[in-house]
Structures are given as C-alpha cells and as structure tokens.
Amino acid sequence: MFKNLSCSVILCGLLLSPAVFAHHSAALYDFQKVASVEGVIKEVKVNNPHLHLVLEVTDEKGTRDITYEGHSRNNLYRRGWRPDKLNVGDKIKISYATTRDGSDGGYVASIVSKDGTEF
C-alpha cells in the first residue's frame, strides 16, 4: 500500500490545495514527490495550523528521530482523525512530500494509525 506511491487523488487531496500553499513554502517541500515510512511516535501535536510529528525511524541510514509537519487539526478531523488516534509509542505509517534538499522530514499527506485508520 505504501510502496511506489505517486501523488494520487486521495493522497494529495490537500497537498495541492491552495490553502496548503498558503501556509507552506513550495520551495521547502516537493509536493509532487511522495515517499512513505513507518515509525514510532516520539512526539505528536495535532494543532492548527500544522500537525507536528516526531517519528523514530529506522532505515538504511540508521535509527533516528525525524520531524514532520502536516495538515491542520481541522482538516485532519474531516479526514477521520480523532483525539485517540495518535499517541506517543504508537507505530504508524505515513506518506509525505519529501524535502527538496533531500534532508530528513517532510509534509505528511496521510497517516495510517495504530488501529489501521487512514486519514
């Protein structure tokens, strides 16, 4: 499900919307290039205007904490997020627009929470 992602309609529903560009620098993230990763939540703040998420991620570069940002609390709510869906210690999957300079982090497009809910 999270392999070979492209900027599909559902995935990029908000990524390409004007409001996202109103809040985020198009220069910082490549909204046409979406990757995916699994990780354990170290920090999470589902706030407006942005989601703040720190995941402990393990990949070929090793294990480290990576910070992501994402949609507003209100938009996440409309996509199915609820207050009990993201907690520190949960193992989750995210898809995200990568950074343009290739550094760690990104803009979260969608999340599959511990219980399998996608938003």
Binding site: S17, A19, A22, S25, A27, N48, P49
Partner: peptide
C-alpha cells in the same frame, strides 16, 4: 525574501479575497 514568513503559519487571517477562495480545505 521570496520565502518570507507566511501569515497562515502565524495564525494571521488573510482576509478578503482569500477567505472566499479556500478551495476544498476550509
């Protein structure tokens, strides 16, 4: 700078006409 701080990131309302142009999101 071209990538200057954005009002939305600081919770500052953009007002008209932007308030009526939130396609899909708000």
């Amino acid at each position: 700078g071209r990538e200057h701080p954005d009002p939305g990131a600081f919770c500052v309302p953009q007002g008209m006409p932007s308030v009526m142009l939130a396609l899909v999101t708000y």
